[in-house]
Each structure stands twice: as structure tokens, then as C-alpha cells.
Design a protein around this nucleic acid. Structure first.
Lengths: 213, 213
DNA sequence: TATAATTAACTAACCAGTTAATTAATTAGG
DNA sequence: CCTAATTAATTAACTGGTTAGTTAATTATA
């Protein structure tokens, strides 16, 4: 619990709350995240949370918006560097993989939210999530028009990519622990780094997309 | 809230609690599932829950064990019908897909648990989950030895299958809602039935596995 | 009669959210 | 440039409701 070293500054306090809330929500989930704990983490009074974000749900929405905005901007920016659909797809997967690995709160928050079917955060979930999917879907469609992709079902392929990468990241501690006590026969991919995994995924996606029905 | 119509019977009461707990935990998540609510759903006194399962965690473990046992038995039984790795893989995917679709509590519970890295249910998670993965991994390995599969990374492919199917099932209500208000340009696969999706996944898996590195 | 199943009533901790008072920073006026 | 008034940020203390879990008494069954 860090003591407050910062001056009175709304911007700073607000950012401090969001930063800690990202950690808390991603680790404990919405219901188990305590606003008392959050205030202690921030070194602020609990009332500040409600002063800036009205209520718990408001804070959660701010957290999700920021996190989704972050990854979306990153992917869009990377995407601009490429023109060929294959390269764009590769960039999408690699960027998401790297970001998810270095910011593991993203997969945790996303999987929790999706496993609830957006129970906590119903409206804004697809407003924000849709845009990422739209980009992915668009890449596939353009690839199909150009004749380099075949037999695409964007929604399924999207879940394939996100599902795989999110599970790989969130289960990492579990798989590492398993690797120690398990027999060697069962490879839990505990030592694979995220680049290897992204490479493998990309190659497999290429194989899936190049074949005509 | 059904009134109790059953006689005094430990077996019946216990089963009643588990059945309702599966629904409750899968809908609300571990933290938000209230034992008071559960007792009301069962038409029993709350103390019964603690009488039979000691505490909330004990009940949750019983729920997870039963649910994982259920799907595992189903898949193992189906698997016996086949001998060729390709058929076994196909059966694995199709059986999981169908079961997940008709018992949507499974994907909900699994995704919640995995997004926590087994926070609630640490020990038994991989004891039970491992067996399913072991079967999947085994199918791939035997296929590779026989020369019909190539370049397999079982852990990644496992998450690919489970990740895709689980997300497809849990997001179904979300995607259907989206389909109504969204532009037609973005296909959320709202009308796809689970057999189509399983077919597509199986075909894509075949394409991925047949190619040599 | 002994044992197992069930209940009502209780507790102590926790939680989201409120309130009214206090402190610090900003601005305006002389 | 200083000070008084205004506004914004922060706090302690509180509330009402909920929660997991307990206990001791009661009912049914074998």
C-alpha cells in the first residue's frame, strides 16, 4: 500500500484509481473486487472512487473502455504499416499476442466478461469489441476478394485467435506449475514463449485459409 | 422456487443442491453466487448446504468435479467407437461442441475458472482438466506416429478447440442481440447452429494437421 | 430409541455507497 | 503582491443491507 506522495491532482488520482482497478478487477473479477481494498491500494480514501466514478459499475466501465481502447489503438496503428491481407492478419495476431502477454489483465478481463455474456458490462461491450472484430473481419474479406483467402467464417476464426491466445496467457501460471509436478509425457507448453505461439498460430491460420472449399 | 415435494432423502437433497448450484455458479460466478439464494432455489434450508458440503468452496468443488466428470465420460465413451486418429479427433470436437451447446453451464464455468487461472479451484482443476487434455494430446500423438498428422502442438491446438467452442456458446445471446441492431455487413454468425460450427472447425483442423512443416 | 435430516434464529464480518466537515488550490479584488 | 472568497479535492465516520457460516433445537426415519 503506497502512501500518497502526489499533490492534490484530480488527473493523477483518477489515473491512480483506474490503474489499480485494472489490476484488481482482472485478478478478482467484478464481484469480488472490493472498493475498500482498491482505496487502500491507491492510498486514497474510498469516497474518492465514488467522487470520480459515481459507482462501482461506472469505474468498471471506465476500466473496460480504457483497456479495450488501448489494444484497439495498438492494433490499428500496426495495421497501417501493411497492405497485403496476409501481412495484416499476421500483424493482428502478433500484436494481440504480444500485448496480451505483457498486459495479462487484458485476457483476464476479456474472458471474464465474455463468459458472462456481458453480464456486467452489456451495452458498451460490443460497441468496443465490435470494432476489433470489424477490423479482423475486414482483413479476411479483403483477402477473400483478392483470392488469397478461402472459405472464411470470420466470427469463428476470430474466436479461434482470441480464444487461443487468451487461454494461453491466463493459464500460464497454471501450466508452469503443472509442468513441475507432471509426468514428462504431457507437454503443457510451459516454456513456449509468446512469439513461438504466435508464429505457430499464424502458420496454422495460413494453412487454414489457403485451401479452397 | 419449487416447494419441496420430496421425502427426507439425503441423496435427493444433495443432488438437488448440486443441480441448482451448477446453474447458479455458471450464471453468477463463484463470488456472486449467494448461498441464501441457492437454498431458496432448492426449497431447502440454507444450513443444508453446509451440512452436506461443509462450505461454499466445498460445494463449488463438488460442482466442478461433477461437471468435468460428465463431459469427460461422454467424450471417452464416444471415443471408444473409433480407431483412426482422424475419426477420434472429429468425435472429440463434435461431442464437446454438442454437449457444450446443450449444457451451456459447462463453457461458462470453464471460462470463468480458466480466466482466474484456477483461483477458486486450484488443485483439482488440473487433476480433472488434465485427463481431457491427455486424451486430446494422445489422439494427436498417435496420429503423428501413424503419419496422418503433422506439426502438432497439442496444448495450443487444445486451447484452439476449447477456446473457440466455449466462446461461441457463451457469446450466443450477445451475438444474437447484436445481429438485430447491427449493420448487415458484420456477420456475427448468430444463426449458425452448433453442427455447422463443429463441421467447420473439424475441416480447418484437418487442413492444419495434414501439412508437413 | 437412536440416528440422520431439517429448521429457525443468530452472528460477525464485509460491502457499496453517503454525508458533512475539512483541507488545499485557484481566482478575484484592492 | 497580498488577501479574501470560491471552488475543487480529500477525509472520517457512518448506514443499511448482504454474506458465509454456526448452533441448538426439532422432526422424521430405521
Amino acid at each position: 500500500m503506497p502512501k500518497k506522495i502526489h499533490k492534490r491532482d484530480a488527473q493523477v488520482s483518477k489515473a491512480l484509481i483506474i490503474t489499480n482497478a485494472i489490476q484488481l478487477f482482472s485478478q478478482k473479477g467484478y464481484a469480488s473486487a472490493s472498493m475498500d481494498d482498491l482505496a487502500k491500494m491507491c492510498g486514497l480514501n474510498k469516497a474518492m472512487v465514488f467522487y470520480y466514478f459515481k459507482n462501482k459499475k461506472g469505474l468498471y466501465e471506465a476500466v473496460m473502455t480504457q483497456v479495450l481502447e488501448e489494444i484497439q489503438q495498438k492494433i490499428l496503428k500496426e495495421n497501417e504499416k501493411y497492405t497485403k491481407p496476409i501481412e495484416e492478419l499476421e500483424s493482428f495476431i502478433r500484436t494481440y499476442a504480444k500485448f496480451a502477454c505483457s498486459h495479462p489483465y487484458l485476457p483476464a478481463l476479456l474472458l471474464k466478461e465474455l463468459s458472462d455474456s456481458g453480464a456486467v458490462f452489456p451495452e458498451m461491450l460490443f460497441t468496443s469489441m465490435r470494432q476489433l472484430f470489424a477490423l479482423f473481419s475486414d482483413i479476411l474479406k479483403r483477402g477473400e476478394e483478392k483470392g488469397c483467402f478461402h472459405d472464411t467464417m470470420p466470427m469463428i476464426l476470430y474466436f479461434m485467435v482470441l480464444g487461443t491466445l487468451n487461454l494461453i496467457v491466463t493459464t500460464k501460471p497454471l501450466r508452469e506449475e503443472a509442468a513441475q509436478k507432471e509426468d514428462i509425457l504431457l507437454d503443457t507448453c510451459a516454456e513456449c514463449d509468446i512469439d513461438q505461439i504466435a508464429d505457430y498460430l499464424i502458420e496454422k491460420m495460413k494453412q487454414m485459409l489457403k485451401e479452397k472449399k
